[in-house]
Write a protein that binds this DNA or RNA. Structure first.
Lengths: 166, 166
DNA sequence: GCTAGAAATGTGATATTATAACCTTTCATA
DNA sequence: TATGAAAGGTTATAATATCACATTTCTAGC
């Protein structure tokens, strides 16, 4: 993950989706839980796009797909997927995205969120980790978790502002 | 703001509070709005500590101080204070803090949030800006806003975990 | 002073996000 | 094939945030 990249609007998304779901099974084996039908369904809805979805968006989509699920169930599934690292939470949106790549666990992830199309890219930018470490050290802060999010326009939307959704 | 610092539990908080409120009047003159009684009240509650408070915490405190205010009014006051830069929003907590120092507008602020006592420190760490700029450039991302938050334990709580509130 | 328009706030209702409490089902394993 | 732990269902509710519209307050210009 040297460079963060926004997927082109016309990329082969089926491949992304498959990759995400394939990783899921093994991630659960490694982490010690089970990729249940519910969790897989929730992940599928998230992985179906590169956009951040709210928990209630997921509920609506599952419902549209013929499956009624209570909020608490979706939140539980999301919690589990977050723990296993298959999903990320975008704090500034109260929303979730499927993780589309493996991460170096020791590094925080920077999310780039497009305000126009809602697409989220992940970055493992090098210098970032060091700068954050310095800040923590200077403040004598015992670091637990890090939230790094940027909002703006992705390369595909920058030229044609006002557009919604690729 | 070279080094972020967590205020000592026994620091002269009256001074912090006064400083914050003094800045407020001039900040509004500069920005072109008015520091109304409501906005000052909200700011006062936030500036009364270095902890992040939820909007409803503010409502409760104002109520305890004898002033009943509707949620929408507090949110409007908070929006105004945020615009003027007197208050910051901590996304990972859905909470707000009074800004206790002037910032270089061109740089994002890193917040260090103590999980034990809730105190928030602000940092303008140097390298950070560059790393974020690189990430944006690499992704061809047109940057608008940045959310940088770290959670963990402040120096005062690290030694005595489990403690709540200085 | 008086008044028109803009800015701020009040009022009441409601939308959105998230969790609590308790019960039932599913599944791996002994 | 019983058993206990993990997962999920059901119902209710908490916590966070906003909408729509009426009223008040402030400022500027007369």
């Amino acid at each position: 993950m040297a460079k963060p990249r926004f997927p082109a609007p016309d990329h082969d998304h089926q491949a992304c989706l498959s990759a995400s779901l394939e990783r899921a099974e093994s991630a659960y084996v490694e982490a010690g839980g089970r990729l249940t039908e519910l969790r897989a369904s929730v992940l599928r809805e998230l992985a179906a796009s590169h956009q951040a979805l709210g928990a209630y968006d997921v509920i609506q989509r599952l419902s549209a797909a013929g499956r009624r699920v209570a909020p608490i169930s979706v939140y539980r599934a999301l919690d589990s997927l977050l723990e296993v690292g298959l999903v990320h939470r975008i704090e500034s949106r109260n929303a979730f995205i499927a993780c589309h790549e493996a991460h170096d666990e020791s590094r925080p992830i920077l999310f780039l969120v497009c305000d126009a199309c809602g697409t989220v890219a992940e970055s493992g930018e090098e210098g970032l980790n060091e700068a954050l470490g310095n800040a923590a050290r200077n403040a004598k802060f015992t670091l637990d978790d890090t939230v790094l999010e940027m909002t703006g326009l992705c390369e595909h939307c920058a030229g044609r502002e006002g557009t919604r959704g690729h």
